[in-house]
Amino acid sequence: MAPIPPAPQAGDDSHQQLLDQLDLTLMPRPFRNPHWKPSQRRNKNIKQIIGEASRKEASVLVTQNNSGSSTPHPQSSANATGSVTPLPGSAQVQTNITQAAQNLSTMVLERNLQASLSSGPIATYTNIESAPSLHPAHQKHYCDITGLPAPYTDPKSRLRYHNAEVFQVVRSLPQSAAEKYLEARGAHVVLK
């Protein structure tokens, strides 16, 4: 471990020189694309990312439900009744292309959905999290203050404690400290 550099003194710029040596902005970085302009809003936290992903997924499902595969195509029904005369060749081809494209995207989506359903659940960041323990032996109680086994709980602060001596400590704790002890165990009250 390197020793802490001495505090910078007035008139002594050795520390500033060291800092300059360490400064990334002064290092040559020719490998960077000079025209690279990152998006201003690229920093997102996990909650945002997951939220956006699930919204996107939901909207895809909605469009699939409303897609042509589930409702009869107006063109074909019109043709069947014969109330509308088919248009001459060129227009016919054009509608067929848009129709085909629409059907294709639907087909791809449906295919993907099927694939995902058939091959079992896909590992996603959220669903690989392990579930809460169901093992009864894992619900042991330990003293919040000392970590020793805790047969008692203080009904006032809800802290678990080991013996009478620790109880005195518990009772002498200010409210904020008791709350922090609970927080370390994840049992604190969260106001939303």
């Binding site: 999290e129 392990s130 323990s133 169901l134 093992h135 619900q139 330990y142 165990r185 994840g186 049992a187």
Partner: peptide
């Protein structure tokens, strides 16, 4: 559960 993590060990 010691650290309030609601997951299996």
């Amino acid at each position: 559960s010691i650290a309030g993590l609601d997951q299996a060990g």
